[in-house]
Amino acid sequence: MRCAVIQFAGSSGDGDCFHVCKNILNKAVEFVFYKESFAPEDFDLIILPGGASHGDYLRPGALAARSKVMKSVIEAAKAKKLVLGIGNGFQILLEVGLLPGAVLMNKGLKFFCDDVFVRVENPDTPFTALYKKGEIIRMPLACKYGNYYADGETIKGLKADNKIVFSYCDEKGNSTFESNPTGSIENIAGIVNSEGNVLGLMPHPERCAEELLGNTDGLRIFESVVRYIEGGKANGRS
């Protein structure tokens, strides 16, 4: 399995993602600069990391979405390669149209930086097969623009097709005003595309993927991908 971590100007989660692929998963991983391009067959997993790319100028993810490397990411997504967008990476996927919707400023108007709880709504994706449906996990969230928005029709479609993968909740699994610091519609924390091979989420699984950090709740996202790629689709579920 070969992984790519895309580096945009201003990315800051790139090193963490690279570290998880290389040292935790023990997989081949390369950085790809945003001015470069690659072929769909070059990588099995492409990670768009967090960190305000291009200074969040214009809108979060807007300038990164129009960079050269994103043409390659779109081609790879079309070829059913796995694409994982974390934080700003999720915003880039929205801006480039690989996922539906957009982000607005958090309801509290502040940069939010703390652990959050999310419920695994859909374990039937290449990214979540090692979680149980309804499982509550804890991940760090760090964003000012995490307030996911889409029009009513889009939300209806996401719900009907089970494309909401993670939603904010409290420790016990209740979704309340307080448990969703972003204000996102339907408490959405992460969604997949209709084909299931592109996942975007606001919380940071790469920052809770090893014992040293005191939390490994995010690790199974990466392990699910390894299982999917190396174990074959049919054996994806544990």
């Binding site: 214009l58 809108r59 807007a62 129009r66 929205l94 801006e95 539906p100 919707g101 957009a102 607005l104 928005y149 889409a150 029009d151």
Partner: peptide
């Protein structure tokens, strides 16, 4: 349409 606005919002 190509850059300055996001037609979703």
């Amino acid at each position: 349409e190509k850059l300055l606005t996001n037609p979703v919002i």
